[in-house]
Every structure is written in structure tokens, then in C-alpha cells.
């Protein structure tokens, strides 16, 4: 079309200089370039327009057009299938599952569409770890003996996973995490790549154990109403720009994670890589305890697809 349009675009995690912040800006910039300046984006970062749940709601309602953040599972618990613990173990498997042509994308896209969300795809962060202050654990027994309390997203399967791994999961608002670590309400944070823990709480945290229990990600999404209102040409521009953002992230994410592991170590944070036996031990107990619960939460239809795509207990 010839219509000029401006999209309101939000990334709730990180400021303008974080990878997410720069990526949402890139999405806006690429749309503008592809449309010769006809389509522009107005970008907002971090908590400017509210927390994750609120921004997601505002997108579903159409007050915000596009977001780069975690799809919320409050509308449909099955969205949580993307966070299943010890689902995949390396980047090749990640690509096969989460890339825009991957099986996970096929599985989740219709669920999100029912909610009113156009899902462009997963924006990968990497394999998550557990960052703590004072002491750390590399296996179930140590975590339990040290009574390590870590902050977790309260939705299934996050707290259940940490509990199975021997930690105490404490639900804390992202904005309160820093103070909570500082005052000792929790010992640390769980489920993120080292970048977030070092960049945001680095002066508080001492250790980062790369537990690799979850694949950490955001997603590029858009209000479905707004998407449907676009003509084919404009849809093509929006989707192409989104795809470019995702592709670029897949190219750089692994290196980005390695870079920040180095930066964090140089900055005095101790990086711990658990042994294969330790990781297997955690994976076994988590798959034994959390996956059956997932059967109830997500339904066997979903879990059948998951099982047909991954080797469990391998």
C-alpha cells in the first residue's frame, strides 16, 4: 500500500543498548528501509510501558503493535511448552526446534494465534544457568544442602524445575531482583544467560553455574488484528524485517554468550561448567519429576509432538 504508518514497538527486557533493545530497533529500522521510510517504528525499552504481562496484554488489545519478549502463558498454559527443562542440549537442536521453520514454532504458532498474537519466531538467548552470591552448587544434593534460594518466573514449569534440581524457587518481580539479592532475600537468579546476571546484578553475584536446564529466549510478536489489517505487501515487509532480526540473532547469539562469559570472568565472576555426569544427573531427575507434570499441564497431544522430536533420557 501507500499508507504511511508508525508502529509502537516494545522490548521489556533490557535498555536500548541491550541485545534485545538493539534488535527491536533493528526491526524498526529494517521496516523503514524496506518501505523507503513509509513504515516506521517508535521503540520503547525495559519497563517504560510496564512489565512483561502488561505489555503482552496491551499488544493483544492493540495498544502496542509489536513486542520482543517472552510469550506470556497466562492466556494459555500450553505456551509454557517452550520452556520445558532439559528439552534440548545444543545449538543444533535449538535451531531445529526454535527457528522459524522448526517444530516448536509449528507447535506454538497456532496456540498464540488463538490468543490474538502473530508469532514471527523465537529470538534465542542461549542455555540458561544459575547465578548466585556466596556459594554455588553443581548438583542436586549440594543445592539442597546449601538451601539456595533463587529467583524464578512463577509459571509452570520454571519453579517446578528448580525445585527438582534442589533449589528453592522464589517468585520475585524482575524490578525487585537486585534489591532482593542485595538484602539476601534470595541468593541469586535462575534461567538466564550470563549477560543478564552479570550486566544487571554483577556487583552482587559471585558465581554463574551453567546448568543449561532451559533454553532462554524471547520472541518477536505482533498484534494479530494489526497484522491482519495490513495488505500483503506490508505484511511481507514486516515479516521480512522480523526474519532478518531472528537470523542475525541466531548467527551472533552463541558468540555473544561466549563473549559475556569471558567479560564476566574478567570482571571477577566465577564461571562454573558442571561435568557431564552432573548435568545428566540433573536432567534425569528433572525429566522424571517435571515432565509427567507437563503431561497434565500441556496435554498429551502437545507432549506427543515433543517426544517425537527429542530423545528423552538419552
Amino acid at each position: 500500500s501507500d499508507d504511511e504508518m508508525t508502529f509502537r514497538m516494545v522490548s521489556t527486557s533490557g535498555d536500548a543498548s541491550s541485545p534485545q533493545g538493539m534488535s527491536i530497533q533493528m526491526w524498526a529500522d529494517r521496516m523503514s528501509e524496506l518501505s523507503d521510510g513509509r513504515i516506521t517504528g517508535e521503540t520503547f525499552f525495559q519497563g517504560e510501558l510496564g512489565g512483561q504481562q502488561e505489555v503482552f496484554d496491551q499488544m493483544v488489545r492493540g495498544n502496542i503493535d509489536m513486542v520482543l519478549e517472552l510469550p506470556q502463558s497466562s492466556y494459555d498454559e500450553r505456551v509454557g511448552v517452550m520452556s520445558l527443562p532439559y528439552l534440548i542440549t545444543d545449538w543444533d537442536e535449538a535451531r531445529a526446534a526454535y527457528s522459524p521453520d522448526g517444530w516448536m514454532q509449528q507447535l506454538v504458532e497456532p496456540i498464540l494465534e488463538d490468543i490474538g498474537v502473530k508469532f514471527f519466531g523465537v529470538y534465542p538467548d542461549g542455555f540458561g544457568g544459575i547465578a548466585t552470591k556466596g556459594s554455588y552448587a553443581t548438583n542436586h544434593e549440594d543445592a539442597q544442602a546449601l538451601n539456595l534460594k533463587v529467583r524464578a518466573i512463577p509459571t509452570f514449569p520454571n519453579p517446578q524445575t528448580l525445585k527438582a534440581m534442589g533449589y528453592q524457587a522464589v517468585p520475585i518481580d524482575w524490578n525487585e531482583v537486585y534489591t532482593s539479592i542485595q538484602t539476601g532475600v534470595v541468593a541469586g537468579d535462575a534461567g538466564n544467560i550470563i549477560y543478564w546476571d552479570y550486566e544487571y546484578f554483577g556487583d552482587q553475584l559471585d558465581y554463574y553455574v551453567h546448568t543449561r536446564h532451559n533454553f532462554s529466549y524471547s520472541s518477536l510478536m505482533m498484534s494479530l488484528d494489526r497484522w491482519n489489517a495490513l495488505d500483503a505487501e506490508d505484511q511481507e515487509i514486516v515479516a521480512t524485517a522480523a526474519r532478518e532480526v531472528i537470523d542475525q540473532r541466531y548467527e551472533g547469539a552463541q558468540e555473544f554468550d561466549a563473549e559475556w562469559i569471558q567479560i564476566a570472568q574478567d570482571g571477577g565472576m566465577e564461571y562454573i561448567q558442571p561435568t557431564d555426569e552432573e548435568l545428566d544427573g540433573w536432567a534425569a531427575v528433572v525429566q522424571e519429576q517435571v515432565w509427567p507434570e507437563a503431561e497434565d499441564a500441556f496435554g498429551s497431544e502437545i507432549m506427543d509432538v515433543v517426544r517425537s522430536n527429542v530423545q528423552v533420557g538419552g
Binding site: D57, R61, S73, S74, E77, I115, I153, P154, F156
Partner: peptide, 17 residues
């Protein structure tokens, strides 16, 4: 009415918002 339509639930108990 939007809440009734979308049936969003709380994270742990799934109580409709």
C-alpha cells in the same frame, strides 16, 4: 468482558484474573 473472553489465569493456581 475482555477478561471473560480471554480467560487469563494467575501463574500458579490459574485463578481467572
Amino acid at each position: 468482558s475482555w477478561g471473560l473472553d480471554k480467560r487469563q489465569g494467575t501463574p500458579v493456581f490459574g485463578i481467572p484474573w
